[in-house]
Structure formats: C-alpha cells, structure tokens
C-alpha cells in the first residue's frame, strides 16, 4: 500500500524548472532512496514534500490526505518529518533538550507557562530512548553546539525520529561523516526499516544499494527510473544519465 503519492509536482525558479511534473510513489514500510547528480533537485524535492518550500502545482498525498498548502509544522504533526543535509539543531540547547523539544511537540500543549519542562520525566525518558537508539545517549547533557560533526549528524537523525514519524525524509544523513560514523548511521537506518517508511537522499552509493528497497533516479527535476537496486544498476538510461563511473566503481 502506498503511503506517499506525489503527482505532477512542479516548482520553478524563474525559467529553471527544478521540479518538473514529478511523480513518485512510496510504499508503507519501504526504504525508498532517491539518487541523482548534483543539481538534480533532490533537496528541493525534500523541502517541497516537507512543506518547507512552496510548490507551483501538483499533488502530495500522504496516508490518503492531501498535503499541498499545508505548512511544514502541520505535516510534521500528520506524521511526516525531515532531516536536513546541513545540520539544523538548537546549538545552545543540551543534546537531550534538542530531542525532548521534538518529543514535546507531539505530546500535549506547549502553552504551559509555569511547570519547569526539564522536570518532565516523560519527555526526558522518551528523548533518552531515541538518543540511545542513534547511539549518542552518553552525550545527552552536552551542549549540542559542542558536538563533533558526526555526533551532530546522529543528533539530527535523533531529532527527526523523536517526532515519531510514519514517513521520514532523510536529506543526506551521511553528509560529511567519516567511515566509522557513517557505518554507525547506516546501522541505525537499517534498524529503522519496517518501523518507519524512509525516503533517503544519499550520495554514498554503497549505503544506498545496501539499504534501499527501491531506488528512484532524479535527473533535472524528473524521475527517470524507479526500481529495485539491481534493476537500477542495470538500467541503461540510468547509466547514461547519471550512474556511469560511480556505479561501475561500486559494483
């Protein structure tokens, strides 16, 4: 059953069509990777799906509900979260507070003015559990801004997870991570599969082909092919349009 159905999604900046009548279907429970050369419009697509960037037209149906025109924060509450390619955290907050804020967003009203939020055990416990899942529970009481780059990438993922999404849009979660950190994040994503439906944008082809159930190839704002990893690897159009050397090296 499809969880996300995108039809005729469009967006242009002046004459430049960044998203050009794009169709995409993501099934419940799958990890759907989107690959494509630089400038193909991958991050723009994620921003459009998440509601951060506006769209010129088309339809985004999530779990049967039309999302077009809905602002980002409401899409998040509907169960659709994103992570950012360029780490976007609350640097002055502790690691725990970063995640607890995300838990707070989905548990009860935040128009509460008197009780100290740091003493809300339910929020802290849930946040700690997510931190443990991505492997940075030991950093819980550090200032988020003081983390290493790899740890920030883990925190980025943790914050998105803490919103408890049905669909998680991951924008290059491995960007800038070293081998060991990347392995760690790949393991986390593998653990997430089936629990959460994932749309993954990633340049690391080893990770993509190891994790993805299906892959869509985005070139100049259009999906030119969708299929299982081995189909994509063998697709002649994909080879000419994009994969070329990278796939050759990878396989």
């Amino acid at each position: 059953m499809s969880l996300l159905e995108v039809r005729n999604l469009r967006k242009s900046y002046g004459a430049l069509k960044v998203t050009d009548d794009l169709d995409l279907t993501v099934d419940e429970g799958e990890l759907h990777a989107i690959i494509g050369p630089n400038g193909a419009g991958k991050t723009t697509l994620i921003s459009q799906l998440a509601g951060q960037a506006g769209s010129d037209g088309g339809s985004v149906r999530f779990a049967g509900t039309e999302m077009m025109g809905m602002p980002m924060h409401r899409r998040v509450r509907a169960g659709m979260s994103r992570s950012f390619q360029i780490t976007s955290i609350l640097p002055g907050f502790s690691v725990l507070e970063n995640v607890a804020a995300a838990v707070q967003a989905r548990s009860g009203s935040s128009f509460r003015f008197f009780a100290p939020v740091s003493k809300e055990q339910a929020l802290n416990d849930a946040a700690l559990a997510v931190l443990a899942r991505v492997g940075i529970a030991d950093r819980a009481f550090f200032r988020a801004g003081s983390l290493s780059h790899g740890e920030k990438r883990q925190l980025e993922l943790a914050i998105a997870l803490a919103t408890r999404p049905r669909l998680l849009l991951l924008d290059e979660p491995l960007a800038g991570t070293s081998g060991q950190e990347a392995d760690r994040l790949v393991e986390v994503m593998r653990g997430l599969k089936r629990d959460v439906t994932l749309v993954l944008i990633e340049h690391d082809m080893d990770a993509v082909f190891a994790l993805a159930d299906r892959i869509s190839v985005l070139v100049y704002g259009r999906i030119i092919a969708t299929g299982r990893p081995e189909q994509i690897r063998d697709d002649a159009r994909v080879r000419t349009a994009y994969l070329g050397e990278e796939a050759g090296e990878g396989s």
Partner: peptide, 11 residues
C-alpha cells in the same frame, strides 16, 4: 535559536 528546526519538529 533556530526557527526552521522548530517548524521541522512540529511547532
């Protein structure tokens, strides 16, 4: 600290 982040977690 980061308004976009707050929107991205649902506020």
């Amino acid at each position: 600290e980061n308004p976009v982040r707050m929107q991205a977690i649902g506020f």
